[in-house]
């Protein structure tokens, strides 16, 4: 049994689903960030799988590199936002920060 493109796609689908599950169910904002990282990783696996098996030689890897760069920038900014939220509200649970509703 050889490993084909489908196996990598299934793996990335599982990773994407778990990441989305973490994003929409966890209360802690840092857990939401971890889910976002999982989603970006699954997108990267898809890029690399298509660039490996689809005949495009390097383009998928370039896209994956830019995804990694944006993930790093997003993590830094999101951590700064989470720290500010913690300073102001003294919690990082995303369902308790609802003063915009009032």
């Amino acid at each position: 049994m050889t490993i084909t493109l489908t196996h990598f796609l299934m793996l990335s689908a599982v990773l994407f689903s778990l990441g989305l599950f973490a994003v929409i169910t966890r209360k802690n904002a840092i857990m939401v960030l971890m889910g976002i990282e999982l989603i970006l990783n699954s997108a990267n696996i898809n890029f690399l799988a298509f660039s490996r098996y689809g005949g495009m030689n390097i383009e998928g890897q370039m896209a994956a590199i830019f995804v990694i760069i944006l993930a790093a920038a997003e993590a830094a900014v999101a951590l700064a936002i989470v720290l500010n939220i913690y300073k102001r509200f003294n919690t990082v649970n995303v369902d308790e920060i609802s003063i915009l509703k009032d």
Binding site: F8, L11, I45, L48, A49, S51, R52, Q61
Partner: peptide, 10 residues
């Protein structure tokens, strides 16, 4: 998985 996919730099 990246190594398996021929992307060592990644």
């Amino acid at each position: 998985i990246y190594v398996l996919l021929n992307a060592d730099f990644l």
